[in-house]
Computed example of a mutant assay.
Amino acid sequence: MLACMRRTSFARWPCSIARTMELLGDWWTPLVLREAFYGIRRFDAFQESLGIARNTLADRLRRLVDEGLLEKQPYQTDPLRYDYVLTEKGRDFYPVLLAMNRWGDRWLAGEAGPPVTQYHDVCGHESHAEVVCAACGEPMTAENTHPRMGPGYPPHLAERPDIRERFTS
Results as ranks from 00 to 15, higher is better:
129 A>K: 00
152 G>D: 15
153 Y>K: 01
160 R>V: 14
123 C>K: 08
151 P>W: 15
138 E>P: 05
151 P>C: 14
132 V>K: 01
127 S>N: 01
135 A>S: 08
123 C>Q: 07
146 H>G: 09
160 R>H: 15
144 N>A: 05
140 M>D: 06
150 G>S: 09
154 P>R: 05
126 E>H: 05
131 V>P: 01
153 Y>G: 00
138 E>N: 12
138 E>C: 11
154 P>L: 06
143 E>S: 10
131 V>N: 01
136 C>I: 03
155 P>Y: 08
138 E>Q: 14
124 G>N: 10
163 I>E: 07
148 R>D: 01
148 R>A: 14
133 C>G: 04
127 S>T: 09
163 I>A: 07
143 E>T: 09
149 M>G: 07
154 P>D: 08
122 V>G: 02
125 H>G: 01
133 C>I: 05
155 P>K: 09
153 Y>V: 10
146 H>P: 02
141 T>S: 10
124 G>C: 10
122 V>Q: 15
136 C>A: 06
131 V>H: 07
157 L>G: 06
124 G>R: 06
146 H>S: 11
151 P>F: 15
138 E>W: 13
117 T>I: 03
119 Y>V: 00
129 A>M: 07
156 H>D: 12
151 P>R: 13
162 D>K: 15
162 D>R: 14
153 Y>C: 04
143 E>A: 10
135 A>Y: 02
164 R>S: 06
130 E>Y: 01
156 H>A: 12
120 H>L: 04
164 R>L: 11
134 A>P: 00
119 Y>Q: 00
164 R>C: 05
149 M>R: 06
121 D>R: 10
133 C>R: 03
133 C>T: 05
162 D>P: 12
128 H>I: 00
135 A>F: 08
157 L>A: 08
141 T>W: 13
118 Q>E: 02
136 C>D: 14
138 E>K: 14
136 C>K: 01
129 A>I: 02
147 P>L: 15
156 H>E: 15
151 P>L: 13
164 R>Y: 08
161 P>N: 06
163 I>Q: 07
117 T>N: 00
159 E>R: 11
147 P>F: 11
150 G>W: 09
123 C>L: 15
160 R>A: 13
150 G>I: 04
121 D>Q: 06
